[in-house]
Design a protein around this nucleic acid. Structure first.
Lengths: 232, 232
DNA sequence: CGGGCGCTTGACGGACCTCAATTTTTGTGG
DNA sequence: CCACAAAAATTGAGGTCCGTCAAGCGCCCG
């Protein structure tokens, strides 16, 4: 099924201890510290394809993307790679179902992330109901994300790609033009397809003039209606 | 992809208002009322293939399976059906990502379910931290379930079926012999396959003598190792 | 005994994967 | 700024897996 990126070479995902990441001053991001939880966080910057946390590590931080974008992923025994989700500026991530991470998290492109101690948040949640509500909302978002992902994976290849484009366009809040932060392999591993199939579906959509591809990562949505019809 | 059960005929899923379901006395179930949340519930019984709640209904109850089993599902526009999860005796369900149900819930076979008012639980959670913890655990379980489902759907057909059998065997707590509560169509819609493919994979596993099929719903796992190898 | 339903099995076709070649883009050093 | 190398993306040919359609079998219940 998924062909996956078989951990290609030295260029991909160099391991990096959290403490060694570049620490930037607090006042950096424009959209930092808007909720009580975020007041407890420390901004950290990551170059592209750098691990933020690894599989099997205990869950002791939660994160908020300030800029750039992040993916969560796991590598199956046979080398296939699954991407759990993409997180864009403003999204929070880091909570999972179990006690330790089953996904790792990596920067897709250069990214700045607010890192927040989980124990602090959890203990604060007992006192401040707003914090508890936000923690709950984070969990809900994660569940919703996973359910939508399931919904994607039962569809056909053209449907998956069209759905993906619409989802990204919506999340990036763009005017019909989307700058995708991730490469084709990332998209393929998220959609459970191969890069070749993703590529073919895109050119197919282009030939149907539903979209245009000025560059490989920049996508113009001409006929949202046609795409929406496709996604069933 | 999913061929789905296209709401076949009168026999499937007759609508039933909650209030009209048979109400059983409290002391019925042997495994009732073991946690504070459950003390607030009312046991209700459902015949097989009866709707417990519907898509788009507000989320105002949470549920615990006392006996029998329950599936959550949604019907796509083109008639395909997706099954979100199966819930067996002891499992709780009813919470989702959004404010209203995107899945409906139906009894798979005759089932007794503890029905608990959500507002009551939520307000109690503010006072009793154990209730809050249980609510949180419920959400976590749901997330974990969805993530495992994603993990299933990126695999090949034989892997999906083998994984499903192992999951069921583990949850039913059986000694290598599993009585599946659901029909082939349910399995197919859960795994994103057709009934024919599910059937073929089962006979394939039988021919490899990894399993035996005394009846179509009773499955003996002979070589768990072989199955585990298969699931990657 | 006969009908209906669920499950299995077979033949066939199409969707997607695999392998391989080519083109385009990106990054680097002169 | 250009030239070159490396990486990413596209395109093509061929094969495989699984969906589709159709027939056949077993079982339960009338």
């Amino acid at each position: 099924m998924l062909t996956g990126a078989v951990i290609q070479n030295g260029s991909s995902t160099s391991r990096l201890a959290l403490g060694r990441a570049v620490r930037k001053g607090r006042a950096a991001g424009s959209n930092a510290a808007t909720t009580p939880i975020e007041l407890m966080g420390t901004p950290m910057s990551f170059a592209r394809n750098v691990e933020i946390y690894g599989e099997k590590e205990p869950i002791d931080c939660i994160y908020k993307v300030i800029s750039g974008s992040v993916r969560t992923c796991r590598v199956l025994m046979d080398g296939r790679r699954q991407i759990g989700a993409f997180y864009l500026a403003g999204d929070m991530f880091g909570l999972e179902g179990g006690e330790e991470h089953v996904f790792s998290a990596e920067s897709v492109i250069d990214a700045t992330v607010l890192v927040i101690n989980r124990r602090t948040v959890v203990s604060l949640a007992a006192w401040d109901s707003e914090v508890g509500a936000q923690l709950w909302a984070l969990m809900r978002d994660e569940l919703q994300r996973a359910q939508k992902h399931v919904y994607l994976l039962i569809k056909t290849a053209p449907e998956r790609v069209a759905s993906f484009l619409l989802e990204m366009a919506e999340r990036i809040q763009s005017t019909d033009e989307v700058e995708l932060p991730m490469c084709r392999q990332d998209i393929a591993d998220y959609l459970g397809l191969t890069i070749e199939t993703v590529s073919r579906m895109l050119t197919q959509l282009e030939n149907a003039s539903a979209i245009a591809l000025p560059t490989s990562k920049r996508i113009v949505l001409h006929k949202r209606a046609a795409l929406k019809r496709l996604v069933a």
